[in-house]
Design a protein around this nucleic acid. Structure first.
Lengths: 213, 213, 213, 213
DNA sequence: AATGAATGAGTGTTCATTCAT
DNA sequence: AATGAATGAACACTCATTCAT
């Protein structure tokens, strides 16, 4: 009768799900993140979700479809919209300086990532093994977000706040730095001597200086 | 009778291996990298290595032991020594400036990574699922390398070439950046518009500026 | 679609079994008795039972659990109760003489053994290799039955019908004789010149005289 | 480097064996007795004997041949001759009374069984699974010994010391009793309250009385 | 919608046996 | 005579998936 607390949050915007279906999604998410997709058995998921194994296949034709059902909304409904929102703010010149933009993104992302850490872990782990995922990623995150980020970067380059190198390089560096920060933070999760405030501060400084003209 | 070209390179320094054993290691490496450890079957490995399935288990008691046999030497014999070498050069004041050090590391690493890309992929993919790997990593890379890198960073901080923030933060940022560069480079491997020279140049510049006092 | 005739008899008092489960039990019983536990493969059992191999493991987690599922009820539900019944009759002084008791036991046992010969064979063969079986045997047959038999023997010793030696010795001798009779009878099963009536008569006489004061 | 102490005794009369061969026989004997023939692997035997697995198959074409090589001499060279000897003593009227004969047999057997307990265990366990063994047993023990025992029994029946029932029945009863005594003794081996002298005395008394006219 | 018994292909692993050295 | 690497068939057991209820 294990009821996952994050269940309601994760998938709650989708009305069409039944109780059991949400239990399945929550259980699968947790297990995929913990042991990997291939190493998780459907019987395990069923047991953890408190449903019969057949029930899983009533909702998802295959185990892979279950994986996609978990990861796709992450890309389609969650990452996309949020990033777009940030970016729109910039393009509407709500952010006057690059630093403000970076800070807002990190902050926004931090909340988001904390909530969806296991989802992200699954995405990162499995993306290289499943071409469909890669395609979806390129489709939803890659193209759109990348294109919009390019706009932002060019916007700040035009304002003389960012060094004049290809936007893709900027994105790569900023992305690596932010992702690296998040990964470290969550891998060294248990570490006690981690001063989040200060680390963010340093990371932003590093980015700002590194990308300054 | 598929003979893997990288076989000789990967494990050739270890004399104790038989022909078949090396075929097994090469096949397993390739498949683990391509499909993941859990999704690769021993029968597949045997087929690709051109040996009987039983032969695998004559050399490696379990599939997991095979994984460790692939990944452990990477940590013990390859990553460790090379990094140490670089660092010793610095501590012997062969590098007068931080930039030279970073460049040397990237360069060194680039060759190494190109040679051992699939090994690294396996390590990165599997490390979170196998506590033994994590421990070994902390033991061999974590503790030693981290400690030595700290020395280097403090060395350059003392010379006023690096900003005065905790060495661990510097390592994280530099690490993320370098790793991010490598990952992007190899994921976008097929991309045609990738100017390696220039990208390295930009990355180093980014790092230098980002970490400057 | 081989339907074992003894299936219904062997396990029919247990309502909880499905059709297939009973087929599995019957097939396993026959094969274990015929070739021994270790020499019987689960695929063989499945084939004989007319089910898929996986079905066996849906009902019994391991091959050993299947063995225990066959042998345990023999000890818990069959041997125990029947022997107790006999003994209770004696203690209720339904048997005035030791001879009557022995005859009743042999007779009772004979029917029982004929019905469950293969089960008994399995028990005898495997008991020395499986500590769990030994423990269960001591628990259910050893302790209880032994204790009750002691009472009976002392009862008849008090009446002056049995020689005054330790009850355990009496049990050993009577047990060996009865078991020896049964084993011979069933090993030399095919022999034509076996007069059961007369052999029982002789065996009882032998026991009576042997144990007389 | 495990050297079995009983090794020399067990097979020492056969000069043709090499060192290793005797190690193999000793190891196999111990393991077959402990876990049963089918549950013992040749690799286990090789390990315990301190030889390579191939060496076993140099001497014994199959695992089964190894079993037969262990059990056959027991029947051909050991049981047979000893029993014959006893019997010859009787027929040469060295034993004037049945009791003397029984006592001599039990005593003789006791030494023998103690020495060859594991061999006997193997024989008893495996005889029902291997037709060859059964045949050999009937050939060497069954026919010959049985025939000679019949003579003895008739001899004592003629002297009026044994009840006039078929010799086969007498053999069965005496055999069960003796075997039962031995088995109990060795199964309850560790029991502390086992007074061997007294038990033999009782067992002989039981037999004598049971078989008296 | 949900179950859970049933499946058969597949899993990692062990087996007895072979053979070049 | 002895080895030990190699084998492929078999092993116990698990898998994702189906389907009658």
């Amino acid at each position: 009768m294990e009821h996952n607390k994050s269940r309601e949050k994760l998938f709650h915007d989708e009305r069409k799900f039944t109780e059991k279906q949400m239990d399945i999604l929550a259980a699968a998410t947790e297990l995929f993140a913990e042991k990997g997709f291939a190493a998780t058995s459907t019987s395990e998921i069923a047991r953890k979700a408190g449903v019969a194994e057949g029930t899983i296949f009533r909702h998802y034709k295959t185990k892979k479809e279950l994986l996609l059902s978990i990861v796709n909304p992450l890309m389609v409904n969650l990452i996309g919209p949020i990033v777009k929102e940030d970016i729109n703010k910039v393009l509407d010149t709500n952010f006057n300086h690059f630093e403000e933009f970076i800070l807002a993104m990190i902050d926004n992302r931090r909340v988001f990532i904390e909530k969806n850490l296991s989802l992200l872990q699954i995405l990162i782990q499995e993306i290289s093994f499943h071409p469909e995922l890669k395609e979806q990623f390129i489709e939803h995150i890659g193209k759109e977000i990348f294109g919009r980020l390019q706009q932002v970067i060019r916007h700040f380059q035009a304002k003389g706040e960012i060094v004049l190198i290809p936007a893709s390089s900027v994105i790569r560096m900023a992305g690596s730095t932010v992702l690296g920060y998040i990964m470290t933070r969550n891998i060294i999760a248990s570490a006690d001597n981690w001063d989040d405030e200060a680390e963010v501060e340093r990371t932003v400084q590093f980015l700002m200086k590194g990308l300054s003209p």
